[in-house]
Design a protein around this nucleic acid. Structure first.
Lengths: 199, 199
DNA sequence: GTCTATAAGACGATAGAC
DNA sequence: GTCTATCGTCTTATAGAC
C-alpha cells in the first residue's frame, strides 16, 4: 500500500494510523499493519516493541495532527463566534469519524493509561482552547454572560463528536451538518442583548 | 456469570448485550459470550446461526430498550424544554457509553446492513421524537421560531453521544454533565422574546 | 535491517456423540 | 439441547538465519 520513499518505521506508523482510524485498536492486527506498510514481521518487531508501542506512536501523531488542524481554524482573527464557526464548518472526512474520539470506544485503549493519555490531552486541549475563545467573546460583549464558557466549549466538542456518530449511523454526512447548524443557531441566539457584533 | 432462572438463549442474548456494550462487536468473541452465559459452544450454535445472528438479537433488544428509556423521559407532560431537559438529565451509566451509539464505531456493524439497521432506526427515531417536541415548543411560543426543530434535535442527540466520548476520554462523568449543562443554557437562552413560559 | 520459521493460544465454526 | 472433538485460520509474538 505504501511503496513511496518513506522509511520503514514511517510506513508502519502511517499504516497504523489509517487502520486505527478505520478499524480501531482491537480490530487492527500487526499482520494487517505489516501488509498495509509492505513490511515483514521481523521488520516491524525490529523497530517497535509490539502492537501497543506502535499504536502509541500512531496515536500520538494523530493527536498532534488533530490539534494542528483545529488550531488552524481556531487561531483566526475574527470574532469568537466566527472562529468557533470556522472550526465547526471546517472540512471533515465525516463518515470516517474522528480518529481521536473513536479511540474512546476502544476498551484496550481506555484500559491503558499510556494509550489513553494522548486522547485525553487532545480533547482537553480542544475544550480549553474553545473555552478561552468563548470567554473572550463574553468579555467583549459578543455573548451574554449567562454563558459558562467551559460548559459551552464542552457542548461544542460533544456536538462534533456526536455528529460523527449520527453521520455514521445514517451513512450520510448530512446528519453531522444538521447537528452543527443547530448548534450555530443556538450560539447565534446567544448574542448579548445589547450586542452590536454582527456574525 | 448468569446462573439464574433464564433460559439458555436468554442468557446468551443478555451476555452478548453486555459484552457488545463493553467491548464492541469486533472485540466480542463467541467464546467470551459462552463463558459469560455459562453455556457450551454447541448450545450457542444450536440456538443461533453464529456470531452475527446472536449479535443481531442482542442489538435489537438493546435498541428497543433505549427507545423505551428515552420515551419514559420524553413522554412527560411538561413544557418542551422540560421534556428535553428530563431526557438530558436522566440517569446514565455515563462511563460505559451509549450501547447503541458505540456500535457506529464498529466497522463490522457499519459494514452490515442488518446489524446497522437497528442503530440507524433508533437514532433516527430519537431525533424525530425530539424534533416533534421542539416543534410543539416553537408552535406554543416557548422557543423563538428562528429554531429549526430538526436541527436542534440533531444537536441534542449529538451532544449526548459526544458527551459519552468526553466522559470516557477523561474517565469522569463530569465531562458529560458539562456538555449537557452548556446545551441546556443555550436552549434556555432561546426562549421566545415574548415568552412567558418559565423553565 | 529484513527475512522465514515456529509457537501457543484465540477465533469462528462444524461434526457427531450423548 | 448440550457436550466434546476437531478444523483451518488468525493473533501476537519469539528465534534465528541472512
Amino acid at each position: 500500500m505504501y511503496t513511496g520513499s518513506m522509511s520503514t518505521p514511517e510506513r508502519l506508523i502511517e499504516s497504523t494510523r489509517e487502520l486505527l482510524w478505520e478499524r480501531g485498536y482491537v480490530g487492527t492486527s500487526p499482520k494487517a499493519i505489516q501488509q498495509h506498510a509492505g513490511a515483514g514481521q521481523g521488520s516491524m518487531y525490529h523497530h517497535f516493541a509490539g502492537k501497543p508501542d506502535l499504536a502509541l506512536a500512531a496515536i500520538r501523531r494523530t493527536a498532534e495532527e488533530m490539534r494542528a488542524t483545529a488550531e488552524a481554524a481556531l487561531g483566526g482573527s475574527g470574532s469568537a463566534y466566527a472562529r468557533v464557526e470556522a472550526y465547526l464548518l471546517r472540512e471533515r472526512d465525516v463518515l470516517r469519524g474522528c480518529p481521536v474520539g473513536r479511540l474512546t470506544m476502544d476498551p484496550d485503549v481506555i484500559a491503558s493509561d499510556e494509550l489513553r493519555a494522548p486522547v485525553t490531552e487532545t480533547l482537553d486541549w480542544l475544550r480549553d482552547r474553545l473555552a478561552g475563545i468563548l470567554e473572550e467573546g463574553v468579555a467583549q460583549g459578543e455573548f451574554t454572560d449567562a454563558l459558562v464558557p467551559r460548559e459551552i466549549a464542552s457542548t461544542v466538542v460533544a456536538t462534533v463528536q456526536g455528529g460523527y456518530v449520527l453521520a455514521r449511523s445514517s451513512g450520510a454526512p448530512a446528519a453531522f451538518d444538521a447537528a452543527v447548524r443547530g448548534l450555530l443557531a443556538l450560539l447565534g441566539a446567544c448574542a448579548a442583548p445589547s450586542g452590536t457584533t454582527r456574525h
